[in-house]
Design a protein around this nucleic acid. Structure first.
Lengths: 116, 116
DNA sequence: CAGTATCCAAAGGGATACTG
DNA sequence: CAGTATCCCTTTGGATACTG
């Protein structure tokens, strides 16, 4: 069997991994990001519908954190009543690779656990 | 600006992403996986030292979950007193790509938030 | 519409002590 | 050494109601 490649600077990498997980590991974060990504821009109430089971309180809190981390942009639209658009920042869009990898791994994991 | 690539089957992908996150998003999971990966095989008390701040209760619980998900193998060594070796399964090793991506993204994220 | 505020039950998780 | 068991405080997050 091939020995897994583990370079000596893994401990520094570990910190970076934790930084990523701090941003992404919330219960709904990835779902919210994917919802916005899917529609390119998305309103609060629409995300509320996209993400099954989330409450407005949670969505509000998670969006705030994503905004602080510069993953999403929040834009108040001048409508009556007001609506709010969310979209991914350029930085947020760099998550695409990870999202795709997580998606692929999730499928192979499902096969591994439940048999193919 | 380039329009982000979002294929119509994103909703199915979303489920797979959630499957991944269910396995990986625990507070210490990635750190534990990385610790075992770094040393190729690792004993309970060593991981306890590697992962700063974790308690034996949490480590025990997280390792059990990782074992259930076939990410790690647990081997009781015939020593006195007994020791227990943990190592990544072949399936666990397929997480390498994601771990590397998370590490890279975490660094670029740090630059994004705190300036480079 | 897009949140905020409050209440409260359930889960998370640290500290400590104990066991084979 | 490798856990388990218990105590108990803290955090999480759903339900509901309210505001600009």
């Amino acid at each position: 069997m091939t020995k897994i490649q583990c370079t000596p600077d893994n401990k520094q990498k570990l910190m970076a991994i934790q930084d990523s997980m701090d941003v992404l590991s919330g219960k709904w974060k990835i779902s919210i990001i994917s919802s916005i990504c899917y529609y390119n821009e998305r309103r609060f109430s629409d995300i509320l519908n996209d993400v099954a089971g989330i409450s407005n309180k949670m969505l509000s809190k998670e969006l705030k954190e994503l905004e602080m981390n510069k993953i999403v942009n929040r834009t108040v639209m001048d409508t009556q009543p007001i609506t709010v658009q969310y979209e991914l920042t350029d930085h947020g869009k760099t998550l695409q690779t990870i999202i795709n990898n997580l998606s692929e791994w999730g499928q192979s994991h499902r096969n591994e656990i439940f048999g193919k």
